[in-house]
């Protein structure tokens, strides 16, 4: 049953409709087995953008910008990308210990960004054996 606009609960703040998977940043293919078709559908589109998102930015450009802006750490590639829309929050985090792969997640737009990022980092830690 759907709720009215004034009937949001605290549970709505958590990414309860969270779905995530590992994908190849070079081919854009989802690498995890996703049994549910709706989950696969939600992640395949996002996965397919990975080669475009990560191969088209010049690492030297990011390094030069980092020098001008006072950055530190790994400056030649994006460490996290989030995309916001009316209905969804999309998250991408490349796996540093699994080169060429990234963890992807999609959840409801009403989710807590902080909670979604925490979940991503927890999953990355597990995947990278930390």
């Amino acid at each position: 049953m759907s709720r009215g606009p004034g009937e949001r609960s605290a549970a709505d703040a958590s990414p309860h409709d969270w779905v995530c998977a590992v994908a190849s940043m070079t081919t854009g293919a989802v690498l995890d087995d996703l049994s549910r078709a709706d989950e696969r559908e939600r992640l395949e589109g996002l996965a397919a953008t990975l080669p475009e998102l990560f191969a088209t930015i010049d690492g030297h450009c990011l390094e030069r910008l980092s020098q001008r802006m006072g950055g530190h750490g790994d400056a030649h590639a994006f460490s996290e990308i989030l995309m916001f829309s009316e209905n969804y929050l999309h998250l991408i985090q490349p796996l540093t210990r699994r080169p060429g792969q990234a963890l992807l997640a999609v959840c409801s737009a009403a989710s807590s960004i902080g909670l979604a990022l925490s979940l991503m980092r927890e999953r990355v830690a597990v995947l990278e054996g930390e």
Binding site: G45, L46, A48, T49, E52, L53, L62, L65, S66, M69, G71, H72, G73, D74, A75, A77, F78, S79, E80, I81, L82, M83, F84, S85, E86, N87, Y88, H90
Partner: peptide
Amino acid sequence: DVTHTFDPDATIARATWAGSL
């Protein structure tokens, strides 16, 4: 352009690099 293919409503993006940038 590429985001439009799976979520045409996406109008905001945030990318992080070099620690805090």
